[in-house]
């Protein structure tokens, strides 16, 4: 009576005492209710095993005994896999139940988060809508539109204008010149693009898009034929030294690592790749650097 009582006594206290006790409760409640089935099948299994045990027996051999046909016949049958015995199945079901509960919790949590995100994005949309309707939206759009062009290497195209760039005002004609050069990149006219960006930097050495131009030159020197890794390295180093706060820095560091790898200097390559992982751990460049190290270094 006392033992029948014990698990249920714990039940009432379980939520009080915390999650550990809750787990204990889970186990304690599972046992008395399912114990009947469990013990029965265990018993059957034991009976089955003991019956096979008597037929095969425990056979022992003398040292001198030569193996005979009889021996092979008396070998016990192979142990059934866990899924074939019901006790094992019971454990598997329990494990599955716990796994399903855990997954259920994750699904519930994620459904909740999605619902929240939807609400938040709706709120944000309504907020923007309200601001635009109020007439203050014009200025905010300019910065974004000319930077929307993506690139194969940068997963962060809208951030190409970094801290430094944003403080520099655009010079007359600069935007058009930059966009014209960039169009050549998109059109895969790499040699023409190198010329265009070089001219751009001569005309607007301190322009708002100068750091971007340095970066693209670095990229371009690697894709032209023949490639010019040293020129690429210089472009990236220029960007690194002149515009240390630029948003392109993580990408430039990653590219520098690759440039040094191409040039055959694995140690320097590893240095830059590790630097981007250390200093910009959340950037996509850090992830690329990690992959590159794993694959090549």
């Amino acid at each position: 009576m006392k033992s029948a009582n014990a698990p249920t006594t714990r039940i009432g206290l379980a939520f009080r005492a915390g999650p550990i006790a809750f787990m204990a409760l889970a186990i304690a409640t599972a046992l008395p209710t399912q114990a009947q089935n469990y013990i029965d099948v265990e018993g059957e299994r034991a009976a089955a095993q003991s019956s096979t045990g008597t037929s095969t027996g425990a056979v022992s051999y003398g040292v001198g005994d030569a193996p005979s046909a009889a021996v092979t016949r008396t070998l016990p049958p192979p142990t059934p896999p866990a899924s074939d015995n019901i006790g094992g199945l019971f454990n598997q079901v329990q494990q599955l139940q716990q796994e399903v509960m855990r997954l259920n919790g994750i699904v519930e949590q994620q459904a909740y988060e999605i619902r929240q995100l939807k609400e938040q994005s709706l709120e944000r949309y309504l907020d923007i809508d309200r601001r635009l309707a109020a007439g203050g939206g014009g200025a905010a759009v300019v910065g974004g539109t000319d930077q929307t062009a993506g690139s194969a290497t940068s997963s962060n195209p809208t951030a190409t204008v970094g801290n430094k760039g944003s403080t520099v005002t655009e010079q007359p004609g600069e935007g058009e010149a930059y966009r014209a050069a960039y169009a050549l990149v998109r059109g895969q006219e790499f040699d023409a693009a190198v010329t265009a960006f070089t001219r751009f930097l001569q005309n607007y050495p301190d322009g708002r898009y100068a750091p971007n131009a340095h970066y693209w030159l670095g990229e371009l020197y690697l894709v032209i034929t023949p490639a010019d890794p040293e020129a690429a390295r210089q472009s990236f180093m220029l960007l690194l030294n002149e515009y240390p706060d630029n948003a392109k820095i993580p990408d430039a560091l990653y590219k520098l690592g690759r440039v040094h790898y191409i040039k055959g200097n694995s140690d320097r390559a590893r240095e830059y790749l590790n630097r981007v992982r250390r200093e910009y751990p959340d950037s996509s460049a850090a992830r690329l650097a990690g992959d590159f190290i794993d694959e090549n270094l």
Binding site: I11, F15, P19, F22, L25, A26, T29, Q97, Q98, M101, R102, N104, G105, I106, E108, Q109
Partner: peptide, 28 residues
């Protein structure tokens, strides 16, 4: 549910109730 469902508490309209369950792995 094979999880623990316990501690019911009625909503005042009697049409639903709250309860505690660990069907999501943790009591909620």
């Amino acid at each position: 549910h094979y999880a623990i469902d316990t501690e019911p508490s009625w909503m005042p309209d009697g049409g639903s109730f709250l309860f505690t369950s660990d069907r999501g792995g943790r009591p909620q």
